[in-house]
Design a protein around this nucleic acid. Structure first.
Lengths: 205, 205
DNA sequence: CAAGGCCATATTTGGGGCTT
DNA sequence: AAGCCCCAAATATGGCCTTG
């Protein structure tokens, strides 16, 4: 898209690749955000920089995701003092319980309530809730594993959580072109069941 | 990007939104694929169509992801006959065991071998492997939950699994512009630890 | 080097029009 | 409606240059 027609092959030149990576990563985030807002859908995108560059040196914060998930999940983040196995088991149990409960109770109504006064088309179904829950769960796991494997110095950013973009939830991202990113209804309510929509990118190089 | 300057707000017009969604979704997939190939990184993107359109009616196949994961995970997909709880527990145990094993053994070498003769820069570290594992795990869960909740009629597609794009793994996606999408080394080896890179999109509307 | 800004050009994607 | 093709306006992003 630049001055040269792109040939779809791995960019071997270290410097060019890194530059391209940064620009394109930004682009992807923006695209995800747009798709999410314009069409009212949830978008999650993760970029694992496969250590292409041995000379990694990142750093930013990865706390962003933590804060985000913590705020929207409602439950506090587990103590970092617990051992990995314990953390995983606990997390898995929660997932299991949640799914079990969801599948046994047929109160489509309760679910609606969870969406707290959400009168827009982005109404979430039980199925959607499950899927989201799973994704959040996974992101949390990834986050935790990263943390516990002692490599927390990765770049992490949360893109656009549309439903509450105006509540300042753009944790580690910026509305690069000053546009207001308006969105249809539903303010931040601290309930992780809220329609979520963001990108979780991680750069290891 | 079309003839009208886009105003970043939820597109209320049902028809326009759906059209935009389709185009932009394609665009996002393409961008993800490009970023992945050009920079040798793994990209996973998921689009949950939050039921914006009540009149959902999709259908394609979602078997694609199953086949993909099955092939790259190595282990056979669990029987659908098991109950949900069982499935989840089993899956979680696997995850736990894997992580436990990974964290106790300090054989950075074994890991390298897992990458089977991969001599390119996309070499994966233990940390990356874990992250990938978690994502795969999650995608599998999502897939399974979807299946069990009886709503398998969603559109699902796997984008570009670069490492083996030439092995015909473009399960449910097409290289829309005929470009060859060359990639650096490493053929399909059936090992799910292979650098993965694809988009998993789901349309509920 | 990494970050930012510029700029020209490659891409993306609204809008329309047609077809099925 | 849903798919496609076309077209042109709107964006994205290589290549470069300047700073820090």
């Amino acid at each position: 898209m630049g001055r040269k027609k792109v040939t779809f092959e791995y960019i071997t030149d270290d410097q060019k690749r890194k530059l391209s990576f940064k620009k394109r990563q930004e682009g992807l985030k923006k695209k995800a955000r747009e798709l999410s807002i314009l069409c009212g859908v949830d978008v999650v995108s993760i970029v694992f920089n496969a250590l292409s560059d041995p000379h990694s040196e990142v750093s930013p914060d990865d706390r962003g995701v933590h804060r985000f998930l913590e705020k929207y999940h409602g439950s506090p983040i587990l103590e970092k003092t617990q051992n990995q196995e314990g953390l995983i088991r606990e997390r898995l149990n929660k997932m299991k319980e949640y799914l079990k409960k969801r599948s046994n109770e047929n109160d489509e109504e309760e679910i609606s309530q969870l969406m707290s006064g959400c009168a827009d088309p982005t109404m979430v179904s039980e199925n959607a809730l499950r899927l989201k829950m799973l994704v959040v769960q996974n992101l949390k796991e990834i986050d935790r594993v990263m943390e516990e494997s002692g490599k927390v110095d990765d770049e992490v950013y949360v893109l656009a959580p549309p439903p509450m973009s105006e509540e300042g939830l753009l944790i580690n991202g910026e509305n690069e072109n000053g546009q207001t990113l308006h969105h249809h209804g539903m303010g931040s309510n601290g309930n992780w069941n809220s329609p979520l929509s963001y990108s979780y990118c991680q750069s290891l190089s």
